[in-house]
Structures are given as C-alpha cells and as structure tokens.
Simulated scan of single mutants.
Amino acid sequence: MPAAGGGEGYQPPTPEIFWQPLFEIGGLTVTNQMAWAAIITAVLSIGLVALSKNASVVPSKAQWLLEGAYNFPRNSIARDMIGTKEFKKFVPLLVTLFFMVLFYNFAGSFFGAMNPVNGKIGFPIALTLVVYVVYHWVGFQKMGFVGYFKHMVPPGLPGWIAPVIFLLEVITYFVTRPLTLALRLFGNMFAGHMIIYLFVTGAFYFLLHGDGILMQALSLPTFLMAGVMLIFELLVQFLQAFVFTLLAASYIAGAVADDH
C-alpha cells in the first residue's frame, strides 16, 4: 500500500504496480500477468474441451451454458459482421479471441489476481498481431496483391483525389487499425485498474493515517466507491472483449468483401 509514514502523506499509485515479477528462468522474468495468462488459457482450454466432448441432442445444464456462451460470439459477432457465406471458417478464431480477451480482462477483478492481463501492453499487441496477420492474409488470398490495394479506393472517385484516399486507406489498414485495436484494450484495462487501486489505497490511507475521526470516516465512502468502480469495471471488461472481437470481425469482413 503506497501510504508513506513520517508525515510524507499519501503516495498515489504509479504504473509500477503493473510490474509484478514472480521468478526468473534464465534471462526471462515471469510476471504475475504471464502466470495468470497461462492459468486462464489452460483452464479455458480444458474446460471447453471437457464440456463439449460429450455433447448430446438434449443438452445438460453445462452444455446449455457452453452453447449459450459460444453462440454469442459466433452469431452476434462472426455471422452478423462477416455474413453467412464466409463467417464459419473464422468462428474458431473469433470465439477464441472473445473468451481469451474476456477472461484476461477479468483477471483484474479476481481477488487472487487483481491485475488485468491486458493491462500490460504486450498482451494486447500479441492478440492484435494475430488479427493483423489474418485479415491481411485473407485479403491477399481473395483479391491478390494488386487487387487488395486496389479495393481500398472506391470506384468513381475523381482522379485527383484517388491518390489521397489511397494513402489514407493504406495508413488505416496497416497502421491505424492495429494501433487503435491494441491501445484501446490496453488503455481501458490500465486505467480501470489504476482507478480501483487509487480508491482502495486511498481508503486504507484515510482509515490508518487519517488525522481525526472525520478523516477516518472518509474511508467508508471511499471503500464503497472502490466497490462501485469494481462493478463498473466488470462491465467495461466485458464490453472491451466484445469491441475487440467485433472490430476483428469487421476487419476480416472488409478483407473478404466483394467491394469496398
């Protein structure tokens, strides 16, 4: 808790709270987020395989819950964004992305972790890199190298403006999209965890170091506000998983579309 004694007062949290090394293997430092990412990935993989292994026509409660969770990214994201003709081959990728991002985000609300995996920029970059490679790859496959760049410019534009639009589209496809996709996810998880940490440590500071009963009493509404922010953060964590997967599907949809 960053509450310093000796009259120095409350010390607000800094980004250093996200650096939580556990141990080293050779020159590699294994951090809290890396450990939780491995645990979450393993539990998700084992759980999904186990629940779907004995699927039946009349589903059990576990199978019913799994199908409901699976159908959300499959139908509401993949099918609706990409279309019924092309979406099925991208369902495994998009369902996997949705569950990974969702539970990596939820690590920020687990009392054993309280540190979102995607609060470290490396994880959003890795997830974004997968999306980046896939939507360019399917675009080149469908349209060819020249055709992929040609489809970035809508037909019918005046000749003088076409080069400007082409340049803007190239920047959008190759720079802006991956940059914003990664930074949006990282920024929300980073900021949300910082705010919760601020309220919790502030409440402890009021309680343990408050000068008088009134200052100590301020710890109660501060603790309550931390709880409110934690609930709000759960909603944000879900929405960011949805938005990340939705944007990934929209980029793939643009790459496989027949027109601009």
Rank of each mutant, 00 (worst) to 15 (best):
A42Y: 06
V243A: 08
R79C: 05
D259R: 07
P178C: 12
K120M: 05
N115K: 14
L94P: 02
V153R: 15
K150I: 00
L94S: 03
V134I: 11
F242A: 07
L129C: 15
G192E: 07
S56N: 04
L218E: 02
L102A: 04
G108A: 12
F149P: 07
A69T: 14
F90E: 04
M194R: 06
W64S: 12
V133H: 06
E67V: 07
F232W: 07
F190K: 02
P73G: 12
T222H: 05
P92M: 03
N32W: 11
N54H: 15
F199M: 15
V236F: 08
V153H: 14
F140Q: 00
F244K: 05
V91I: 10
I39P: 01
L183D: 07
A42K: 00
A249K: 01
N54R: 15
A182L: 13
M114E: 10
I82L: 00
L93P: 13
F90T: 04
K88P: 07
Y132V: 05
V30F: 08
A255N: 00
F232C: 06
V58M: 11
G254T: 09
G112C: 11
L127C: 11
A191S: 15
N75F: 04
M229T: 06
T172R: 09
A162L: 06
L198C: 06
G27N: 08
L66A: 08
W64C: 05
Y70I: 09
E24I: 13
M100N: 06
D259E: 09
G192W: 06
V228D: 13
F123D: 05
G139D: 00
W19T: 05
G27L: 01
V138S: 04
P163T: 06
S219P: 01
V57T: 12
K85L: 10
L198Q: 11
L246H: 02
Y148N: 10
V133C: 08
G26K: 03
D258R: 10
S52Q: 09
M229K: 08
L93A: 14
G112W: 14
T245H: 01
A37P: 15
A226W: 04
G27C: 02
F238E: 12
I195P: 12
M143R: 13
A107Y: 08
